[in-house]
Amino acid sequence: MTWPSAEPLETARLLLEPLAVRHAIEMINALGAQELYRYIGGEPPSMKGLQAQYERQSRGQSPDGKTGWLNWIVRDRTSDRAIGFVQSSLSYNDGALIADIAWLITPSEQGRGAAVEASSAVLDWLRTLHPRRIRALIHPDHAASARVAERLGLARTSALVGGETVWETAPIPSDVVKRSSGQ
């Protein structure tokens, strides 16, 4: 399976750069606040750990090739500072492309619309791939991420995956997906 590669994206206030190992130097600060891990678990990464993670993620797919990985560093245009990331995992389920999306913005930049703006740019880009469904997994108590999902047009479902609520777009009928992707 050949998966697409993340492309640079731009919005009015943000630049989204495809992930590279060199971003770890900047992102160690953006990911350093313990409060970021309240709902997602874990703790701030070490520099060595983040470099290893970015090395894996920048390959663009899981080791078995069954999942595509797309990762963007979110950069503020004005300050040129890395303020977070947006990522998407691509997989096939019964022959239909499914895109999972996640976002994280450093606490000092939260509440200013960066997560919505960056994630909207990624969603628009993902839609060019004609996925059957786009989903986000959000901790049930994470109200801020739930608001981002709502603003992105995702709807809360009753499904849980790993204790997180599935938010998703309405499924695109398979005949529309086939027509739009040239199948």
Rank of each mutant, 00 (worst) to 15 (best):
Y37G: 05
R59N: 12
S88E: 08
Q110L: 03
R156G: 06
G60N: 07
R75S: 03
A114G: 00
G84K: 12
G84Q: 10
A115N: 12
R147N: 14
P63Q: 05
R81H: 08
Q61F: 05
A149L: 07
V161A: 02
H142Q: 13
A99M: 06
W72D: 04
R135K: 14
V116N: 11
A99E: 02
H139P: 06
P140W: 05
R135N: 14
S89W: 04
D80S: 13
G65F: 11
D100E: 03
G60A: 04
T128H: 14
I28M: 03
G60K: 09
L90I: 07
I73Y: 00
V122W: 01
A121S: 09
V74C: 08
T106S: 15
S58L: 12
L90M: 02
A144E: 04
G113T: 03
M27F: 01
Q57V: 14
R22M: 04
K66L: 13
L126N: 11
E17R: 15
R147H: 11
I40C: 07
A149I: 02
S89H: 08
R56G: 02
V21M: 02
T106W: 00
H23K: 10
T67G: 00
I40Q: 02
E109D: 14
G68S: 06
A52I: 02
N29W: 00
G84I: 07
L31W: 15
I138Q: 05
Y54W: 10
S91I: 00
D76K: 11
M47K: 00
M27C: 05
A102C: 01
A96F: 10
G111F: 12
S46H: 01
G163H: 04
G60T: 04
I98W: 02
G41K: 06
I134A: 11
A144K: 10
I134N: 13
A24C: 06
P63W: 02
V116L: 15
A143G: 03
S62K: 01
Q53H: 08
G162K: 04
K48D: 15
D80K: 13
L104A: 10
I105G: 08
G65R: 02
Y92K: 14
S58Y: 05
I138M: 07
L31F: 15
W103C: 03
T106M: 09
D124E: 15
E17K: 13
S108A: 11
R133P: 04
S120R: 15
D124M: 06
N93C: 04
S108N: 06
I138K: 01
L70A: 10
L97I: 09
L152S: 07
Q87T: 03
A118T: 03
S108H: 10
G153K: 04
G68Y: 05
N29D: 14
L31H: 12
